[in-house]
Write a protein that binds this DNA or RNA. Structure first.
Lengths: 196, 196, 196, 196
DNA sequence: TATTAATCGAGACGGTACGTCATGTCTTTTA
DNA sequence: TAAAAGACATGACGTACCGTCTCGATTAATA
């Protein structure tokens, strides 16, 4: 059964990890999740879609969760990075708007929702999700808000983590329950928690 | 493989649905979820644990999600009902405190988290969860808040659904990510959204 | 992937073992061995060819060796039974001629050679082959020769097992090494060992 | 995973074939066959055991059968050569006694049995076994017996190949079926076929 | 004294088959 | 007619080897 993606691909590079295979797996996982849902996201299907041997997947990823984390981390960085420099009110507000857009309208955001979901079923997923995604990102978010607070741009009503959860929580919860998250709602949450 | 739960049980009742079998399935599902996690919650395992034939499960429930919804609805009603009468500030505040307790500390609350999770993987689950649980409950929550607003006990900053999500969202999000939800946090959310 | 053998087949018979499935497996094993050789005789291929689930095979046979033993026992009985009644010289001589024909010219005889071969690779196969085929058959052969000796029809030069091996050994050895076994050779072995 | 056999070994010899690697492979194959049986005799296991890269094996041997043939030919020559000079009755009788000892009691004899077995599963093996082992050896055996016949030391009842098979066949057959081959049996076969 | 060419260990790769498990459907037997 | 029992086709799981390949290192013969 040949690869589904058609480009010539594959300059097999001997002893070294094959970057083309790595990308094929990540894209296949992404595609399958978006097109057919998590239930159809099996290792066999990924291998089939990517034109890759199952063993190649098992060699590099301990589970499909880690594959999804890899795609999530890459996609998040591109579409949804935590601003590392400026901490003005508008930048911070824009970050949360971007968050809402990511989890409700960007196909890549489905990966985050799927991983939060999977973490309920599987303690290992929970740990990986925290260690590799939620934890590091939260660190950056805290930095962002700390800098904003010091600059007098924002002023959280609650302790930092609680304040972030008070904004992010409703966004994610609505995404998980299939509701939309209009920009006005994000702004209201932001104003309520960070601009009082 | 005989039933795990030991009582003699089962006066097989021919013509009528066997209530003992129904209860055995619900308890088995609950037990398995709490003790071994969602991953081990298979139809086969439920049948084994309940000492029931698979077909008996398939006859009465279209999927294991509906089994869990049955247990969730029963358990919610017992431990976590939406107050139908009084709508004082304290009652409403108490309701959200109960919500937080349910999803973070009550084993039965794990069922709700598991169903929210499963809904990400499976559109049918999403529909059932809304139609049978989230929707009806939200209706009651809206009533509760409406009565509270009319009585001048609370005064939501946002439209009703958004206001409820602004309180429930952070609670559920923290539960989903394994964080605790101290009573003080619930109170702060409540005060911020409903008492301004 | 549908069954290869085409008849409508399969009136699935619920609680009871499905005889059609059993036969389909035996025939598929036989066919594959004869047409493609032992190397292609995998459980997956048998399942495919028989239009049967792998699990159905694993449910009833501990290994493909036992499948082959089943076919060998049935086929041997039909084509190559040990004469149970008469023990005249001609009957006994005819038996050994039949033996030679079976292992060198009958496709079903390939199964015996394959099992002797597999027994070298696998102690479990060796045990099964003895317990289910070689042992019982040797018992009957000993009876046959004992009756023949008592009737004065034959007179073995060696003890019974050695005498039988002195005739059967060359036949099987030549079959295993791809040589033919002409009738005259069988007769010469018979005359040399049993008619001196 | 380092080599299992411990000596420092291997002064990698650049341009030339590495004799140490060749021997390591042969010994590893022998060891694995004797200690763990044919089933565990995989190319990967040989490479592991020998501390050699798989490619080194594939470079020099087309299959593991050829490896075994190499060891068999060397070991046969040492322990079990066809007498090239004298052809007295005792020498010939001794040869067959040695044959029996080799296939039933010498670990190296297991290799011959394994190859006869493998030849049933694989036509390529059958050809190699004949071309490189059975054929040349049979040639020598015919010479031996021819010289013995001319010297009046033996007098076969059958044509040469049949006579040899009438002695060797029972020996090998009993070895294949796990029976012992006492010296007296060899002598009886020898006397019956070659001394009448 | 470089350069070339073949060897070696290592190990990634696309595959096939393994034996196990859960799915949802079906049938028989028992009460 | 409900329920226990369990056979069945389907298909994913994670593992083991297959035979091919490409690397970087080593070493002998050649230029």
């Amino acid at each position: 059964m040949p690869a589904v993606n058609s480009q010539p691909r594959r300059a097999r590079s001997g002893n070294q990890r094959d970057e083309a295979a790595r990308l094929a797996v990540l894209h296949a996982a992404d595609d399958l999740l978006v097109e057919h849902g998590f239930a159809k996201l099996t290792i066999e299907a990924i291998a089939r879609q990517a034109g890759v041997a199952k063993q190649t997947i098992y060699r590099w990823w301990p589970s499909k969760v880690e594959i999804l984390l890899d795609t999530l981390i890459e996609d998040s960085e591109k579409r949804f990075a935590v601003p590392a420099e400026k901490s003005t009110e508008d930048v911070i507000r824009g970050y949360f708007r971007g968050y809402a857009r990511f989890v409700t309208r960007d196909p890549a955001g489905k990966v985050l929702l799927a991983l939060i979901a999977e973490a309920q079923h599987n303690p290992g997923t929970a740990k990986s999700l925290h260690d590799r995604y939620l934890g590091p990102r939260r660190e950056l978010e805290r930095d962002l808000l700390t800098r904003g607070t010091e600059a007098g741009e924002v002023s959280p009503r609650l302790d930092l983590d609680a304040a972030i959860d008070a904004v992010v929580g409703p966004i994610v919860y609505r995404a998980l329950t299939g509701a939309n998250v209009p920009r006005a709602l994000v702004d209201a949450l932001f104003d309520g928690q960070l601009k009082p």
